[in-house]
Write a protein that binds this DNA or RNA. Structure first.
Lengths: 263, 263
DNA sequence: GGTGGATATTCGACATTATCGAATGACATT
DNA sequence: AATGTCATTCGATAATGTCGAATATCCACC
């Protein structure tokens, strides 16, 4: 781990959390001298990863991140392949759909289709949700025991009254998810919103993403039809990626322990 | 400039261009030993800024960038304030609209509204266009001589047959843009697509963004009405940001020479 | 199915490199 | 107008990242 890069990344993370920070604030948060932080920020700035506030002296995230992120999305094979299927899923169920990938202890939405009812909806691509509070997250965790173990080393943060905060309960659910090839969540992340997710596997059988349908809790539980169409969608995407069987098998915990590969 | 951070940023840039690269390819591109590059990539990877291909040994951009970029967009005051105005602009003109910010020698689209005709259109947020080939870019350059000078130090890349590649011609246009408070571009970036842009200023009178309408070249030139509504939109956004006059004045070249602040 | 080549990865000594503290400069606030 | 806060610059020190050789791993070809 290269120290300077680690510190630079931490600066980005801090700005991600606080939006606007001055050198002294960063300096305090990182427990580093202001001059050191200044050097780091200046370096990030020359690459557009950080920008100075128009007239204040605080710093914020920079525009280069937007460009990088756009390329990131383009790079994702799953996303390109999944798009037509998630659109169809949305059409056939009348529900909003999501495609999510793992980002440490969160799920990040890499594709989103609003409900096809024409109502004005916020695009959700780029949002991230704590994995343990999300149906997609449960899917990703269920098929990746290493990740699940890592996640449960810290206490589970509560987002609503219904968020699972007990590791034992979560573990139990994950086992069921792996068995059924389907995860659900009722108002565990957002009040009034529930979801259902299924695993997407690639050629090697590794689960690399999750598809989900999102529905108002007032419409819970969903019809069997929704479950079937969701499953079918996950299987179709997986097949298009070269997976031979579905639902996939749970990966063996790797001896090579650190963070799992993402794609 | 901290060396390690500079190199890390270059790795991100390379991955932005090539999507998938192995250590040896990066090593060759950066002219650094593989072990050094490996260390850099490993550091970026622990922060999710870079990810390993699911089963290959090459690397790609990581999901953390998507999250950062989402926060970046949320951070932008201009964007939040401009949204209702650009939507109205789109509605009143029947055209696609964009809001753009400066990213070195490019303009990056930070907000996009498709044509309100209901046709299927690709979201453009996050796309970047060489500044000299874009109406928004011309606006940003016209009000920032330092940036314009910097940009013309390298030859201007041609994107279509109509792209301005002659610095003298561009300089002339920029002067006109600053005078009129309006820039235009006919198929200089994309064949069949032309656009018109106006400056957005903040409280201090600094031009921090540009609004644009995009129209098929077949509909060129636009009606006077479009020009007026565009101007009105730019003025309204600027006023909402606290600008007192519009169009803004051209900033004096700063003695403090390096890259201008972005917001 | 076995072998060879290429590529990624690990490790430790060295010297380059980033770090830090003090001094300066800019700003805002009283 | 003066004082405090904060960002920024600069140069010496030693901690840090860099590099090359050795090893492991993966692929492709035979």
């Amino acid at each position: 781990m290269i120290q300077a890069i680690d510190r630079a990344a931490k600066v980005l993370q801090l700005l991600q959390g606080a939006r606007h920070l001055g050198i002294s604030e960063l300096s305090a948060a990182l427990d580093l001298p202001p001059s050191t932080v200044h050097g780091i920020v200046a370096s990030l700035r020359t690459h557009g990863l950080v920008a100075k506030e128009p007239h204040g002296k605080r710093y914020m995230l920079g525009p280069a991140l937007l460009k990088l992120s756009n390329v990131y999305l383009d790079t994702l094979d799953v996303r390109a392949r999944a798009m037509r299927w998630t659109r169809e899923l949305s059409r056939r169920t009348g529900l909003a759909t999501r495609l999510g990938a793992e980002l440490f202890d969160e799920v990040i939405i890499i594709e989103h289709n609003g409900r096809p009812d024409g109502s004005q909806q916020m695009p959700e691509t780029g949002l991230s949700i704590p994995a343990h509070a999300s149906a997609m997250g449960k899917v990703l965790l269920a098929y990746n025991p290493t990740l699940a173990a890592e996640l449960m080393r810290k206490p589970l943060r509560s987002l609503t009254g219904d968020t699972i905060t007990d590791a034992a309960v979560l573990t139990l659910q994950l086992a069921q998810v792996a068995e059924r090839g389907l995860a659900s969540e009722e108002q565990e992340a957002v009040l009034g919103e529930s979801s259902l997710a299924a695993p997407v596997a690639d050629r090697s059988g590794t689960v690399i993403a999750a598809v989900a349908v999102v529905l108002p809790s007032s419409e819970w539980p969903p019809e069997d039809n929704v479950l079937n169409v969701l499953r079918e969608t996950a299987r179709n995407i997986s097949r298009e990626l070269g997976a031979t069987s579905w639902p996939p098998r749970v990966a063996e915990p790797e001896d090579d322990s650190d963070d799992p590969e993402v794609g």
